[in-house]
Design a protein around this nucleic acid. Structure first.
Lengths: 251, 251
DNA sequence: CAGTGGTCTAGACCACTCC
DNA sequence: GAGTGGTCTAGACCACTGT
């Protein structure tokens, strides 16, 4: 390097320990997650970023590489780097919503939300969403149908503000996860799932129009943001002859 | 380059299309998957690889980086790069086996294999394992217990040679997935799952010692290798009060 | 053509690990 | 100390995309 003293001085100070590429990555990452760089937006070219940050191209590329492998950006030879568009419905098989799955099987999906209220979060919900106990949450109960026949009963817990936004969208006919991505701009990353089986019982039997001893697939979904934020908590009770859950679990 | 014994000099070579780092990555990858480089083995240092392949360090590092992000190797500062050990039981929560899950909940897991036979693969099994219809497969039926109480019934389909190896191990008391990784050296990558619910019915009711109308969680598991090979096909019927499936689904 | 990312080189200094 | 990977620089040529 030129002189023994200063190979580094992008903003001169405050840096200390963190590698340059990690700082750059962090800044771009923030810009994307805070939507200062909206989805589809072209990033500055590598040459421009070099100048802006005062580092070499390799350093820029290392930052961009990691953002790419995190799925935040995609780069196209000869064109540039772009903020990833929230996949829409192309993520099928990995993390598919209920309606989405039904529709890909050629069945008409619809839904009816029949109860909405806000109250203190049950302990298990607060724990999963990392909320303080008894934080208010909005509970939304929905029956979803396939070809007009009841197929599943959902009970979802949202942080109240988020709940209002979700309800203002077309929740009845869309998957909450799709709404969060497409309408509200969240970036889904991973979903905790758990699966079990229960008898329908009286209440769910009435809702789904089946005998009380019908076996139901019970699943719990807790989708998380790229930032690690838990977005909501959802209980699902579905009729096994109407719906089968499929996914791919990676190590 | 295939025929050449020594690392051929890169310039003016026959390859032309494939980037150097990809070739190097491919060779190392093969060496690992074919177990010429066994698990835990230290790779040559970056300096040695530079000499061996006649390329710059950055090129070596790009190859190693990608292998690392594929989970084939791990690198430790000051020590070197090492072929990843097939995680043993540290992958919990992502792709956990049945016994593994029970034991982490402090419960004694055991099993009893009560039927083994070889015959033509059912259509759905052949399809999932990408075998020709009616290819012979070995069917192994096992009841698994938690603290001595029946908890689940498994019906697994293996390619016959693999089935023999599995049965020769301690299948009764271990998860098939763990045996495949730890004893047989496969590298698990992802598992297709599907989940539904069924009534126990007469046969499964007897096996699990529950009434015929008990709801059971039905799951299908098809684990895949890093090479994309489907390793086996497993049906699971579990008692919901004994076992809950948990996993994380990434997009 | 100019602009972009993709690949590659030949150096350099540092932090870490082991002896 | 010697050996290792982690980070970084300042160039270079190529393939691709647009005009």
């Amino acid at each position: 390097m030129t002189s023994s003293s200063a190979p580094t001085f992008p903003s001169a100070d405050a840096v200390g320990e963190i590698p340059l590429f990690a700082q750059i990555k962090g800044r771009l990452r923030e810009d994307i997650l805070e939507k200062r760089l909206p989805a589809g937006q072209k990033l500055p070219s590598e040459a421009q970023l070099q100048l802006a940050f005062g580092v070499s191209r390799i350093t820029i590329r290392q930052a961009l590489n990691e953002l790419q492998s995190e799925g935040l950006i995609e780069t196209k030879n000869g064109k540039g780097s772009f903020v990833t568009r929230p996949a829409g419905s192309s993520r099928l098989g990995m993390l598919a919503g209920f309606n989405e799955l039904l529709r890909t099987h050629g069945r008409a999906a619809s839904g009816r939300t029949f109860s909405t209220r806000t109250g203190p979060a049950p302990a298990r919900v607060a724990r999963a969403l990392k909320l303080a106990p008894r934080t208010p949450v909005t509970v939304v109960r929905t029956v979803r149908m396939a070809d007009g026949v009841p197929a599943a009963f959902f009970q979802a817990y949202y942080e109240p503000t988020l709940g209002r936004e979700i309800l203002a969208s077309r929740l009845a006919d869309e998957d909450a996860m799709n709404l969060l991505e497409d309408e509200l701009g969240f970036r889904l990353d991973r979903t905790q799932i758990s699966a079990s089986a229960v008898k329908a019982g009286w209440m769910r039997g009435v809702l789904l129009k089946v005998p009380a001893d019908t076996p139901l697939l019970y699943m719990r979904f807790v989708p998380h943001d790229l930032t690690g934020l838990a977005l909501f908590y959802s209980d699902m009770y579905s009729l096994p002859d109407q719906f089968t859950y499929r996914a791919v679990v990676r190590r």
